[in-house]
């Protein structure tokens, strides 16, 4: 069991720097790009942590997000936003950083949590051991999401369906009909 902690810390520092840049920059495009950089670093981190499924998904989603965000921002408002600091945003981000630090300290300090690298795996032990004989599926993650917990995946598909439908609904040409059409209808 090789030690992967140094690489993880390096990626973590990179992600924190990237996100700070994303919050602090006043140019929308560079914010989008630094967010994407954080996403790619995250994908590499997943690969280190033994989650190739997640790494692939994160990677392709990140590409798509990058395309959509650049497409959405580049021609709209490429000028730097020169406005005053939004105090609310700063306070919220500080609170979240505090929470994250506390969270990280608890996880790594082990107060009440299982040790890092030693998960409880009470339920998932069964998935790992009976996954192959029960579902004939070599990829246990796929076995979990599409067989043991297929109902969740249906929910996930409906989430995507909902949000896409919602986006299409919001992008329709006119929201309300003209008064005369209503009378006619």
């Amino acid at each position: 069991m090789e030690n992967i902690t140094p690489q993880l810390y390096a990626l973590l520092v990179f992600m924190i720097v990237g996100s700070v840049v994303a919050i602090e920059t006043r140019n929308l495009l560079s914010a989008v790009i630094s967010v994407a950089a954080v996403g790619f670093a995250l994908s590499v981190a997943f690969l280190f942590l033994g989650a190739p499924d997640i790494a692939i998904t994160q990677l392709v989603v990140e590409v798509l997000v990058l395309i959509i965000l650049i497409r959405g921002t580049i021609l709209l408002d490429n000028t730097a936003v020169e406005s005053h600091r939004d105090t609310l945003a700063v306070v919220t981000s500080l609170i979240f950083f505090g929470l994250l630090l506390g969270f990280g300290a608890m996880i790594f300090g082990g107060r009440g949590f299982p040790e890092f690298g030693e998960p409880v795996m009470r339920v998932s032990k069964v998935y790992v051991h009976t996954g192959l004989p029960a579902t004939y599926c070599a990829n246990i993650v796929t076995a979990v999401i599409l067989d043991f917990r297929a109902y969740d995946t249906m929910g996930e598909a409906s989430v995507l369906f909902t949000s896409i439908l919602g986006a299409m609904a919001l992008l329709r040409r006119d929201g309300k009909r003209k008064e005369e059409e209503v009378v006619a209808a």
Partner: peptide
Amino acid sequence: LEVASIASYALVAFGVG
């Protein structure tokens, strides 16, 4: 919960005013 919430976000903004 996310299905219901996302549907309601879209429905609140449905008038697109």
